[in-house]
């Protein structure tokens, strides 16, 4: 385990893409491919990354890359892996990059199947908390209170009323070989996890939070900062699951102010102090569980 800014491959594998300026998802894909290297075979469903990377004749992947159906990221990876294995190929890594909708909603069946079979693939969910490619519609990973184009914030309903589904724990519950959460605000941590996951024989999963300036209503230069702050204020956590046990990579001694994180994003600007208090309470309740889960023994 030695990857860092100095040892990282200098070649760029995801280059020339048409993602919005300051795109968190593009950063996650770029870094993961630089960690895995030229023998990565990327599978990317319909969504932002395929829309910005594969516009013939502007084709932005220097490694092998293929667009899958929206629901079929994991199943296509399964097939690619099976095909290469059957043909006797060696030294490759099949890696998927799907968004939150592609993973937690339409693609969860195929993902569950791949984990169940323990196919030798790495699945990376870049989570920007809504269907950004189609114009910021709610997914099951949209956080409580967020305004999207299908959960508008008005007098009657203040944005999304559901709390974010915990994909990391859902995946871990399969008894997967390795899974982790990450944030593009903490790239060293993300790189470590990609390197580890890529080295594992069997299914591995990384859930990386990747803000979308366009959908979240933040400035393009704030993307990384916000991705860091969501971890620092405790609304997202960095953890791993391996050999049946959970490990927390970062336990902030004191959380930064949730209100500061919320107030800087347009998608939350309708929220009152009461609702921000509610979100803070949700955070505290989650951390009580996390502390029990990770530190009770």
């Amino acid at each position: 385990m030695s990857v860092n800014v100095n040892t990282l491959r200098e070649d760029e594998y995801f280059f020339g893409h048409k993602a919005c300026a300051g795109c968190g998802g593009a950063l996650a894909v770029r870094i993961a491919l630089k960690v895995i290297g030229p023998n990565a075979i990327a599978t990317i469903p319909a969504g932002c990354m395929s829309a910005v990377g594969f516009n013939f004749p502007q084709l932005c992947f220097k490694n092998n890359a293929i667009i899958s159906t929206f629901a079929g990221t994991a199943s296509m990876m399964t097939g690619i892996e099976a095909g290469l294995k059957a043909l006797g190929k060696k030294d490759y890594k099949v890696v998927g990059f799907a968004g939150d909708g592609g993973t937690a909603d339409i693609g969860i069946q195929a993902l569950s199947g791949a984990i169940d079979r323990n196919d030798d693939v790495l699945y990376i969910c870049y989570d920007n908390e809504a269907y950004m490619n189609t114009g910021i519609q709610k997914s099951s990973l949209t956080p409580f209170g967020a305004r999207t184009t299908t959960t508008p914030a008005g007098r009657n309903i203040k944005g999304n009323q559901k709390v974010k589904k915990n994909m990391f724990e859902i995946v871990a519950a399969h008894g997967i070989r390795y899974c982790a959460t990450a944030s593009i605000g903490y790239l060293q941590d993300f790189m470590n996890k990609v390197e580890k996951a890529a080295s594992i024989k069997g299914t591995s999963y990384i859930h990386v939070l990747a803000p979308c300036p366009t959908g979240w209503g933040i400035k393009t230069d704030e993307c990384v900062e916000v991705a860091k702050e969501v971890v620092d204020c405790g609304l997202w956590y960095l953890a791993e699951y391996e050999h049946g046990t959970y490990r927390l990579n970062r336990r902030p001694r004191e959380f930064t102010d949730v209100a500061h994180y919320i107030r800087r994003q347009d998608r939350f600007k309708h929220l009152s102090d009461t609702e921000i208090k509610e979100i803070t309470l949700q955070r505290d309740a989650k951390w009580q569980l996390l502390d029990k889960q990770y530190f009770s023994k």
């Binding site: 200098e10 760029e12 280059f15 893409h17 993602a19 300026a21 950063l27 770029r30 790239l187």
Partner: peptide
């Protein structure tokens, strides 16, 4: 020369 800018660029346009 800490290269954090190179690392965090979403477009990979900064090189050492």
């Amino acid at each position: 020369g800490c290269f954090l800018c190179y690392l965090y660029c979403p477009d990979g346009v900064i090189s050492k």
